[in-house]
Design a binder for these strands. Structure first.
Lengths: 101, 101
DNA sequence: GGCACCTGTGAAAATGGTGTGAACGCAGGC
DNA sequence: GCCTGCGTTCACACCATTTTCACAGGTGCC
């Protein structure tokens, strides 16, 4: 089986992300971010795109919200799926969600 | 054996919830709520869903009945099964029943 | 009536989420 | 290896939500 995905299911309509059928305890923002990333697998998404989808509007030029929430999300995903590295950083650009890593 | 479930049996048709074969003394509302939650294990249920099933209709926007009854239910479950934490809060969304926690 | 219990409400206390600034660490270029 | 810029994480203050308590109205039983 794949290291990460397959065990991870994302169900926005149920307000939940499941690992092996058990919901992660994500906050609303964390879940929104995960949903947004996972809706565009393998695509590099800029901070502006992510901010627009999750927070709406444009981030202040020095806004670090996206980074902070990516960090929080990684921490929780990493606990539930230690082998997987689902969210990749693309330096100077943004982040990419990679289901099968 | 599992910490919580296994020792807990819910018998809606008998209007009873048993721990180690002994009935909890739950009120009608408390039992309805427990039955409803336990019919959807591991699923995050919104207050609206729970209210609809237990009370019927929609709650007033500031109605805290669900919360209060969850609290009362937890108190009684906690007395009978101190180790178990069966009902989990999902902030901003609702509650989740987790049989094997 | 008097009692015991259930129910829903309001309000105070406790808990948890959010965004920000700052410190830290790492990667890539020189 | 050393700089520099960017990304990561931490700590905190503010705000929102949840939990718990106390109470008043209602119901049924004796």
């Amino acid at each position: 089986m794949l290291a990460g995905m397959g065990r991870l299911e994302i169900k926005p309509e149920q307000h939940a992300a499941l690992v092996d059928g058990r919901p992660l305890s994500l906050t609303v923002r964390e879940l929104q971010l995960l949903v947004t990333l996972s809706e565009h697998p393998q695509r590099i998404m800029t901070r502006d795109e992510l901010f627009a989808e999750v927070w709406g509007g444009r981030p202040r030029s020095d806004d670090r919200s996206v980074d902070v929430y990516v960090s929080r999300l990684r921490a929780k995903l990493g606990e539930a799926l230690p082998e997987a590295s689902l969210i990749h950083t693309h330096n100077g650009i943004g982040y990419r969600f990679s289901p099968d890593d």
